[in-house]
């Protein structure tokens, strides 16, 4: 428990923020130059394939952050760990941002390739539902701020939302959709040529670093809020 004391955490947070700040722009420039200049165009889609380098990492981040906050909320509901609550609260807005970005960039990719901005197919609709769950989740922090019901409400949203995650993931395999199936599988080989995988993972790294930076800053803000509230008692 002592390891998780705010005093120890805040030292690491400051170190991490400094570290990310020092390497972020270097990684960003490398990532962008691979994504926009060095990587080849696709045999079929031409240069539009470059949208993939922001679309796919955003979608991955949106999905994984929701899984993390949902599991965190449920663990918090059962075990009542204060830290976990702050963790979830700091992470949620980042997930919402990237889910929205995945939808918007997907739309900008869909227009030149499919010929439409939007289609009500299973993948796109379930992604929109994920965005709504994020909105409910973040709204309930504000609406039920001082209510004792907050953990219950967050848990309910988490349960419903986490069921949606495998639906998003496998929607392209289970049902006929306009969206193409996944190119990168957890098991087995990917159907993206290696010269395109390099910018994809570089951009993923850039966005993950960004997420970590925002998360640490938000987490630090939450710690300071608590300290400020408790200042009288010190």
């Amino acid at each position: 428990m002592d390891f998780f004391s705010f005093g120890k955490i805040i030292v690491y947070i400051d170190k991490f923020i400094k570290f990310i700040n020092s390497i972020f722009f270097l990684v960003l420039i490398i990532g962008l130059s691979f994504a926009l200049i060095i990587s080849p165009m696709d045999y079929l889609q031409g240069d539009t394939v470059r949208i993939m380098y922001v679309h796919v990492p955003s979608a991955w981040i949106g999905l994984s952050i929701f899984s993390i906050i949902a599991i965190g909320t449920l663990l918090n509901f059962v075990f009542k760990i204060k830290n976990l609550y702050l963790f979830v609260k700091s992470l949620a807005p980042i997930g919402l941002l990237f889910t929205c970005l995945a939808i918007v960039t997907g739309s900008l990719w869909g227009k030149p390739t499919w010929g439409t901005w939007w289609a009500w197919d299973a993948r796109l609709t379930s992604m929109l539902i994920l965005m709504l769950f994020y909105v409910f989740f973040i709204m309930s922090f504000k609406i039920f701020k001082d209510s004792e019901k907050l953990p219950q409400i967050l848990s309910a949203i988490s349960i419903l939302g986490i069921i949606n995650i495998p639906i998003i993931k496998y929607s392209v395999e289970w049902w006929s959709t306009l969206h193409q199936p996944a190119s990168i599988k957890i098991m087995g080989t990917s159907s993206i040529h290696s010269s395109m995988l390099v910018p994809l993972f570089l951009m993923l790294l850039v966005l993950l670093l960004y997420c970590a930076l925002i998360f640490l800053m938000k987490y630090k803000t939450e710690i300071i809020k608590i300290k400020k509230r408790n200042i009288k008692r010190l």
Partner: peptide, 16 residues
């Protein structure tokens, strides 16, 4: 110009 797709590509990178 990005082979005619410049608008879509630059807008998506810019929005992000």
């Amino acid at each position: 110009n990005m082979g005619g797709y410049g608008f879509y590509i630059w807008t998506s990178f810019l929005i992000v």
